[in-house]
Amino acid sequence: MWTTLAWGVVVLHAAYLVFQMCGGLLGFRDPRWLALHLMAVTWGITIVVMGWRCPLTVSEKWLRTQADGSAYSGSYLDHYLFGTYLPNGSQSLVYALHLLVILAIYAALAARWMQTRKTHPVHT
Rank of each mutant, 00 (worst) to 15 (best):
K61D: 02
D68E: 13
G74C: 08
L63S: 03
I102V: 12
A111Q: 06
L103C: 15
W62S: 09
Y76V: 05
W43E: 01
G24D: 03
W2P: 09
W52S: 06
S92Y: 00
Q115Y: 14
P55C: 02
A104E: 06
P31Q: 08
T42W: 13
A14N: 02
V41G: 05
P55G: 02
V122H: 09
G51I: 07
G69S: 13
H120N: 14
I102W: 01
A6Q: 04
W7I: 12
G51R: 03
T3F: 15
G23W: 05
W33H: 09
P121K: 03
P87W: 04
S92Q: 04
A40M: 08
T65S: 07
V49H: 07
V48I: 14
L99I: 12
P87S: 03
N88K: 13
Y72W: 11
Q66A: 05
M114T: 12
H120W: 11
H98V: 00
R53C: 11
D68W: 08
A40T: 05
E60F: 01
T57R: 03
Y85V: 02
T4A: 13
P31S: 08
W43L: 01
V49D: 03
L25W: 11
P31E: 06
H37S: 08
T3E: 14
G27K: 06
W62I: 09
H120Y: 12
M1Q: 14
I105A: 04
A14W: 07
G8I: 09
I105K: 04
C54A: 08
Y80L: 10
V11H: 03
L38D: 12
V49I: 15
C22Q: 06
F82I: 00
H37D: 06
L103R: 13
R112H: 14
R32G: 15
P121L: 04
N88F: 10
L17W: 10
Y16R: 09
Y95H: 07
S75L: 06
G24K: 02
F28N: 07
T42I: 10
W7N: 12
H123A: 10
R53T: 14
G83K: 00
A107Y: 14
V9D: 02
H120C: 11
W52L: 11
L109F: 08
Y106N: 14
L56R: 01
F82Y: 07
L26Q: 04
R29H: 13
D78Y: 00
V101W: 01
D68N: 13
G74R: 06
D68C: 10
V101G: 02
Y76P: 00
M39T: 11
T57A: 09
W62F: 14
I105Y: 03
P87G: 05
H123Y: 10
R117V: 08
G23A: 08
T57P: 04
V94M: 00
T4N: 15
W33K: 03
L77Y: 00
I105M: 01
A110E: 10
T124F: 15
A35S: 14
Y76S: 01
A67E: 06
Y85F: 05
Y76K: 01
Y80T: 02
T3G: 12
M39H: 12
Y16M: 07
P121W: 08
W43S: 00
H37G: 05
Q20W: 11
G44F: 04
Y16W: 13
G44R: 04
R117T: 09
T65I: 06
L86A: 09
T116P: 05
